[in-house]
């Protein structure tokens, strides 16, 4: 029972945090410089791991499905298989899981240690609103950078699949690429961009919430960091299911 009540209180507090972010988002001061800095740190800073994740995911996908496709004599569609899987599912989910691990934890740790060392109080005492100064820029940065990184992940993933298909299955690159092109429709891409936008928001809001609700000194910071990764990862996977259903019925037809 206690657990349920605690859960409800957390949902309430997160909703309140979201409301405070939305209420202040267009009111000055806007902290544009801080937003751009966060886009650089959180977004561009994650580029390397996203490149590696995307490349190897695409490659292993082509590798694993190659034999099965060959049995049915449709090895030529492996490009489409890889690209569709990446755009619809693996690109958004893997990119955002990596972001939850790298960025969400970092946000929780940073805000958590600022809280326990009284820097958040100092910020308020010196006349700035920590929601606008710390939370909003991180949310804006992740909501914009997560889709951008997902697109990059999709691209290098398809490339990874191509290399695997050429080198291990002796496929012609033109066959792979023309088959992959079939997968790239506007609706597929749109669906594949909605997901990371939502996930980016989830990662940022959970990271900020966990950081700002840290209690119990430095041990508490560690706990918040772990919780932010766990909660945002689970939420990403759960929300992914709901979004997939919605996108399938609304954008991609029955």
């Amino acid at each position: 029972m206690n657990l349920i009540i605690r859960g409800i209180i957390q949902v309430q507090e997160i909703t309140l945090l979201i409301w405070r972010v939305l209420r202040g988002i267009f009111r000055p001061p806007l902290y544009l410089r801080e937003i751009i800095r966060q886009m650089d740190v959180l977004g561009f800073g994650s580029l390397t791991i996203i490149l590696l994740t995307g490349f190897f995911t695409g490659a292993v996908l082509a590798l694993n499905t190659g034999n099965t496709l060959q049995k049915f004599g449709v090895q030529s569609v492996s490009g489409q298989l890889v690209a569709t899987s990446l755009i619809r599912e693996l690109g958004p989910v893997l990119t955002c899981l990596m972001l939850a691990g790298r960025v969400g934890s970092g946000i929780a740790a940073e805000l958590g240690s600022m809280l326990v060392s009284e820097q958040i109080d100092a910020m308020r005492a010196l006349g700035s609103d920590p929601i606008k100064k710390l939370v909003t820029p991180r949310i804006v940065a992740l909501v914009t950078m997560a889709p951008a990184l997902t697109v990059i992940c999709d691209m290098v993933g398809t490339l990874g699949g191509l290399l695997a298909a050429i080198s291990f299955q002796g496929q012609a690159s033109s066959v792979y690429m023309s088959s992959a092109k079939v997968a790239v429709t506007y609706n597929e891409i749109l669906g594949g961009l909605i997901k990371p936008t939502v996930f980016g928001f989830v990662i940022a809001i959970i990271g900020c919430y966990k950081g700002l609700s840290t209690t119990g000194g430095t041990v508490g910071v560690g706990r918040s960091t772990t919780q932010s990764v766990v909660v945002s990862s689970i939420l990403i996977i759960a929300v992914d299911f709901v979004l997939s259903k919605l996108i399938l019925s609304l954008l991609l037809g029955p």
């Binding site: 009284e118 109080d121 100092a122 910020m123 005492a125």
Partner: peptide, 19 residues
């Protein structure tokens, strides 16, 4: 409160400087 806080300076326990 923001306006009131202009009148007040606070020295925190460990300084609470922005790292």
């Amino acid at each position: 409160m923001m306006k009131v806080r202009h009148k007040i300076g606070m020295v925190f326990q460990e300084g609470a400087l922005f790292d």
